[in-house]
C-alpha cells in the first residue's frame, strides 16, 4: 500500500514537472513511459495475475492503432475513435480468447503470438482500407506542436492511471481472486466453482482494452502508422520484460519496470543506433538469467552467486 502510494505520488510529481517545464524531448519521454506503464500493467492482468503467457500485446496495439486511424481518416471525432478502437480490440480479444484460452503453456503462447502476424498480413493485403504496407497517414489534431505534445502526455498519462486503477481494483475483486487461483492451479480453481473460462476471457478483454486504446492514442500521436511498426513483435515482448523487471503479479511492479526499462532503452539508443535490438536481446538474456524475480532482487553479491551457478562446475573459480 505504502509503496503504491509513494509511486503514485512520484508519478504525479513527474507528470506535473513535465507539463510545466518539459521540452519536446522530455514530453516525448514522458508520453512514452506512460504508454509503457499502460502496456506493462495491461499485460500483467493476463500474464501476471492469470498466469497466461500472452504474446498478443502487439496484436491488440496494432488493431487499436489501425481501427482508430481508419476511423479518424473517415472524419470520426478523436475521442469516439479512441474509445471505439478500445472496444473493438476488446471484442477481438474475446474472440481470440474463445479460440486459444483453453490451451495452456506453449500452445497458448504460440496462438497469442500468431494473432499479430495474422492481423499484420491482413493489414498489408487490404490496401484499399489500410493503405497496405505503405502505411496510413492520420489527420493532424489542432494546435501547435507544443500543445499537441502536452495533450498526448495528458491523455496517455490518464490512460496509464486508469490502467493502474483497474489493476488495483482487480486485485481486490472477486475476479482478482479467481485469476490468482487460476494462475496457481487451474483444475483446483474449477473444482471450487470458479468459471475459469469466463474469468480468463474477462482478464484478456480487460487487458486488451487498455492496449487497444494505447495503440489508438499512439497512432494519433505519431500521425503515421505502418503494419511493421504497430504489429511489431517487440511490442509483445517489451511489456513482459518491464513486468519481469519490476515484479510479476503485483500492481506496482509493471510501473517500476516501465520506468526502469525506458531508462535502459534510452541508454542503449544513445550509445548504439545500429545494434540496439541486439543489446536489448542481451539485456533480456541477462535479466532472465540473473534477475528472474526482478529489480527487487538486485544485490551485488547475489548477482555474483548467480553467475557462478550459471557457469559449468569446471569453470567456477
Amino acid at each position: 500500500m505504502l509503496r503504491g502510494g509513494l509511486i503514485g505520488a512520484a508519478a504525479v510529481t513527474v507528470f506535473g514537472i513535465l507539463l510545466l517545464f518539459g521540452d519536446n524531448y522530455a514530453l516525448r519521454l514522458g508520453t512514452t513511459v506512460a504508454m509503457y506503464v499502460t502496456l506493462a500493467t495491461a499485460w500483467n492482468i493476463i500474464g501476471g495475475f492469470a498466469g497466461y503467457p500472452s504474446f498478443a500485446t502487439a496484436a491488440f496495439f496494432g488493431l487499436g492503432a489501425y481501427t482508430s486511424g481508419i476511423a479518424l481518416s473517415n472524419g470520426i471525432p478523436l475521442s469516439v475513435a479512441w474509445a471505439g478502437a478500445g472496444l473493438i480490440v476488446a471484442l477481438f480479444a474475446v474472440m481470440l480468447g474463445l479460440c486459444i484460452l483453453h490451451l495452456r503453456g506453449h500452445y497458448f503462447a504460440i496462438g497469442s503470438l500468431v494473432a499479430a502476424d495474422v492481423l499484420r498480413e491482413i493489414t498489408n493485403v487490404w490496401v484499399s482500407v489500410t493503405g497496405g504496407g505503405i502505411g496510413l497517414n492520420l489527420p493532424l489534431p489542432g494546435g501547435d506542436a507544443e500543445t499537441q505534445a502536452k495533450l498526448f502526455l495528458c491523455v496517455m498519462s490518464g490512460l496509464a492511471g486508469a490502467a493502474c486503477c483497474a489493476a488495483w481494483t482487480l486485485t481486490r475483486s472477486r475476479l482478482g481472486v479467481a485469476l490468482r487461483c487460476i494462475a496457481q492451479n487451474e483444475d483446483a480453481a474449477q473444482v471450487i466453482g470458479i468459471d475459469t473460462g469466463r474469468s480468463k476471457i474477462a482478464a484478456l478483454a480487460l487487458s486488451s482494452l487498455f492496449v487497444g486504446i494505447a495503440g489508438a492514442i499512439y497512432a494519433s500521436w505519431t500521425i503515421y502508422i505502418d503494419p511493421s511498426d504497430v504489429y511489431d513483435v517487440s511490442l509483445s515482448v517489451k511489456p513482459i520484460i518491464m513486468t519481469l523487471l519490476g515484479g510479476v503479479g503485483t500492481v506496482t511492479g509493471p510501473i517500476v519496470g516501465a520506468f526502469a526499462f525506458l531508462g535502459l532503452e534510452e541508454l542503449i539508443w544513445r550509445n548504439s543506433l545500429e545494434f540496439h535490438s541486439g543489446f536489448l536481446g542481451l539485456l533480456v538474456v541477462a535479466l532472465v538469467l540473473f534477475l528472474p524475480a526482478g529489480l527487487g532482487q538486485l544485490r551485488v553479491g547475489s548477482i555474483w552467486t548467480r553467475i557462478r551457478t550459471v557457469l559449468p562446475p569446471e569453470a567456477r573459480p
Partner: peptide
Amino acid sequence: QRVIISPVMARPVLMTLVLTFGLTLFLDNL
C-alpha cells in the same frame, strides 16, 4: 543450451520463451 538455457530449464514457460526471444534479437541484429 549448456550455458544459457540449462539454468532456466525448470522455470515457467514465460521465462524460457523470453530468454530464447532475447537470443533471437541478438543473433538477428548481429
